[in-house]
Nucleic acid binder design. Structure first.
Length: 207
DNA sequence: AAACGGATGGGCT
DNA sequence: GCCCATCCGTTTG
């Protein structure tokens, strides 16, 4: 048994994020996103990600810093949230050395804690509908623009190593294969293989 | 099962 | 003024 306060329950260190964005996107699979709000804790295992790179036209940071994408040029391991289609938000993790302008979009979670709270926020009871999309998971976890730029090592929002939550029997994601495809919902640079998910996981957004 | 359109507002050419 | 890193209910095959 790891003693209480041991490494496995501690948020991922900045050094985890300050690496190549593709590497981080792959390694985030299986880790756990936790949000502690006044309403309680909600958490989910990351099962689907996308990488957005600095010289990639689909990336918000590809044409230099603006007021919207500013967090992408800040320190790695912080949050970047933005409004999409006027009604939803997407949550990204800033990656690579500070100033690079890259991030990983979190596209789907497998719910692991606070499912009743998630169900209330999402207006549905079906586990597979709670967090199976970038807009859905932001709602299920009760996240908002006040978390834009937040430090994922300290705040109410954190990412923990996969071992910090017990796996359902026979579902250790570290044993699953990682599938790579093109990204979803974009028009620019649509052919690049920058989407990653745990093969066979029932909680991803799309096949 | 897949395709389609409406909601809705900020960002950028 | 057009373009979205979306979601959901409705229609169509």
């Amino acid at each position: 048994m790891t003693p209480a306060g041991g490494r496995k329950n501690r948020p991922l260190p900045i050094s985890f994020y300050a690496r190549s964005t593709v590497e981080v996107a792959r390694d985030l699979l299986g880790t756990v996103l936790v949000h502690d709000s006044p309403q309680g804790r909600a958490a989910g295992r990351i099962v689907e990600t996308e990488a957005y790179l600095r010289d990639d036209p689909a990336c918000h940071a590809s044409r230099g810093p603006t007021s919207r994408n500013r967090p992408m040029f800040g320190p790695p391991g912080h949050a970047y949230l933005y409004l999409i289609y006027g009604m939803y938000h997407c949550f990204n993790v800033v990656t690579a050395p500070r100033g690079t302008g890259e991030a990983v979009l979190i596209r789907a979670l497998e719910p692991v804690e606070g499912m009743a709270l998630m169900a209330r926020r999402r207006g549905t009871d079906k586990p597979k509908a709670l967090c199976s999309g970038p807009g859905k998971l932001v709602i299920a976890l009760g996240m908002g623009m006040s978390l834009n730029g937040a430090d994922l090592r300290r705040g109410p929002l954190a990412i923990l190593p996969s071992a910090s939550y017990p796996f359902p029997a026979g579902e250790d994601p570290s044993l699953g294969n990682i599938k790579v495809t093109t990204r979803i919902g974009i028009t620019q640079a649509a052919h690049l293989p920058l989407r990653f998910y745990l093969e066979g996981n029932p909680f991803i957004s799309k096949k």
